[in-house]
Design a protein around this nucleic acid. Sequence first.
RNA 1: GCUCUCGUGGCGGAAUUGGCAUACGCGCGGCGCUUAGAACGCCGUCCCGCAAGGGUUAGAGGUUCAAAUCCUCUCGAGAGCACCA
Length: 807
Amino acid sequence: MDFGKIEKKWQKIWKAKKFYKTKDKISGKKNFYHLVMFPYPSGNLHIGHWYNFAPSDIFARFKKMSGFNILSPIGFDAFGLPAENAAIKRNIHPKDWTYKNIKTMSKQLESMGNMYDWSREIITADPQYYKWTQWMFLQLYKKGLVYKKKAPANWCPKCHTVLANEQVISGQCERCDSQVIQREIEQWLFKITDYADKLLKDLDDLDWPEKTKTMQRNWIGKSEGTEIEFKINDSEFKINIFTTRLDTIFGCTYLVMAPEHSLLKNNKLGINNYEEVKNYLDQAKNKSDLQRTELQKNKTGVELKGIKAINPFNNEEIPVYVADYVLGYYGTGAVMAVPAHDQRDFEFAKKYKLPIKQVICQNYPSPICPILEKAFTENGHLVDSKNFTGLTPQKAREEMANWLEKNKVGKKNINYKIRDWLVSRQRYWGAPIPIIYCDKCGIIPVPEKNLPVKLPNVKNYLPTEEGKSPLAHSKKFINTKCPQCGAQAKRETDTMDTFVCSSWYYLRYADPNNSKKFADPKKIKAWLPVNMYIGGAEHSVLHLLYARFLTKVLYDLKFINFKEPFASLKHQGIILGPDGQKMSKSRGNVIDPDELVRQFGSDCVRMYLAFMGQYDQGGPWNPTGILGIKRFLERIWNSKNIIKNQKSWVKNADIEKLFHQTIKKVSEDIENFQFNTAISALMVLLNEVEKHKNSLSISHYSLFLKLLAPFAPHLSEELWQKLENKKSIHLESWPKYNPELIKEKEFELIIQINGKIKDKMFVNSGISQQKAQEIALNSEKIKSAISPDQKIKKIIFVPDKLINIVI
RNA sequence: GCUCUCGUGGCGGAAUUGGCAUACGCGCGGCGCUUAGAACGCCGUCCCGCAAGGGUUAGAGGUUCAAAUCCUCUCGAGAGCACCA
């Protein structure tokens, strides 16, 4: 049977009839926004894309048949580094490369037969789209959530651009794996840190995978502690430190400042050995993140000679060091070092022969504490801590913080790990940042009416080493007039991180062709927030965090009336190559879905992907089982003859019951994204039906086709129309089961002794414990298993399941 | 180092969430159909045992009438973060 032929036929008909065009409102139906993360136009679809798009379409089709008005759009995340890098490698203009890929990938996507509304397609590299990306930038700018600063940033020497914190993986560039270095450069940032608390709190109410929420929580990294002032002796300067272990302050034997600390610039503190310190600062600056990490085991630092800091709790004078194991961007950029209770301080103190003073001890009130071979970080009681001695660390932190606040030398404070989102890129293939520099007026945002700032079609799009965008070479682009005073001015030449484009695209689908607004508020209201969002877990702290941030900003600006973009979220697993490695062209382990579709048909491929295993698990691609699905579909195709050749129909209560049980099982499984067990239930049903051919009526057969429709949209449509139905099966409503009919009249009672199965027996459903007990004790097997001298201690009865005799 | 997943036949995986372990599919074996094969159909297929029966969810303990499921430790695989004070 050539399924490919049927599939092409229906795809053509659906396209011609605009069958999947979405209406914003259908009376009597609730809207349901079903969204799959839009693809990056990298070249061709691989089987991983199919795994993302095909099973999710099963869910969408099921929801549609269940009575919802579905929005299931598609588009392309078209700007960005990888496309640009790939284009450069092939010596093609990024635009040509990207649009060529979009064309191929669209064709491939169509061959899946998904219910996408192509009239709503969006492409983020389209000026009609990025006009609004630039508009978003301006809204954030107005709200004071965008700023520019010159500071060390993650620089990828191969991509010639800065990267956001989220795009640096273990000190390496997310895209090309080059070692990222720190480079002082002018950059634009979004103040995502202002939203750290909201981003954290609102996670609680989201229907998202728990691990994804955990990842975001860790990324945001809330940490409650105390900020303390340490005065410098004979000086007006103070060093502020942040700690979560205030209880250990009597064990503080020195302070450490990060090399980036502002008090270290130009020898403000009047240090005696500034030459030496300056040398150290310069060295630290040139270290990459990775180098700094690699040196974890071998910490370095320099003492600031000639100054001492004063511990406010005991007025002890302690030395101050600069060391790059302290981070400049976290907390206050300085810490109090307690070697006895912090492993990093412990290592440093050992190396520089600094005192290690234990103030938390397990043995309290015994005065003898064990000698430390590493930092002691567990719980105990305070020792050698003046009037705080004897307290638990928890209690001590409370009381010490009160003491600090009373004496005005410190206060409770909260720090977050998350850093501001660096959005500027020194690259060509992105949305230009809508900013103008005027000698007189300074930094001026482009007026909204002048948007979009179009990306010019330049010949020279190669990135440059000096840290400037290729757009800096385009005189036509740079030179402009100041919107405020009209004088000659220059445009910003950096472009935006592609994650800015993708952080709001879900809003645009509600109204993709609007030229006056990013979307009509009525249409936004009709569809958003997204009801079901599906995509890879690799975006947990990138796209998914950025999208939440932008939604919250738009909410605060009153453009939208919801705080979270994606009500429910599901991740699909990753399909690896047959060798168990990540699929990549260089490894040569990429599976081409087109070839599989030619061989088996798209219904078969999508169904096999759904059948392979749990949707969120993935794993190595193993094609051996696809024949099972192929056979299943062939059997369904042949089953039309059962009806045709049927002479007399015999009602069969068991088959009747199985049908209703299958409706229940399939419905619940699709709702829970358990497509594999839903398909297996359909297989069980077909197996039974084939055994009792004469008990299959036309209405049973129709019902089966409806259950099949989300999984195999083409085949089910073909068979449906062969039954002389005029309308499409995809306009039918999802079958409902009769709760009365699925009830089992009998069940197999499991009879256990001490939890081990000894006998099984069919009995009527709903029997009482008494009755079950009687039956169980009368069983020959049970009788012989219990010797006369053994007494029954207890009997456990689980209704309609089992009875357990404890002896 | 920290945070978090996961480990079930030869393979992909089920198990109503603590109540019949191995559903469904692949593969394999046997039989049928066939000149033969392919395809298809039927039967079998966790291990030991002729059987009665016993054992089995990476391994070892524990909780429970009852554990693949909960707890502790060990081993193994994977993901994310990583000097965050």
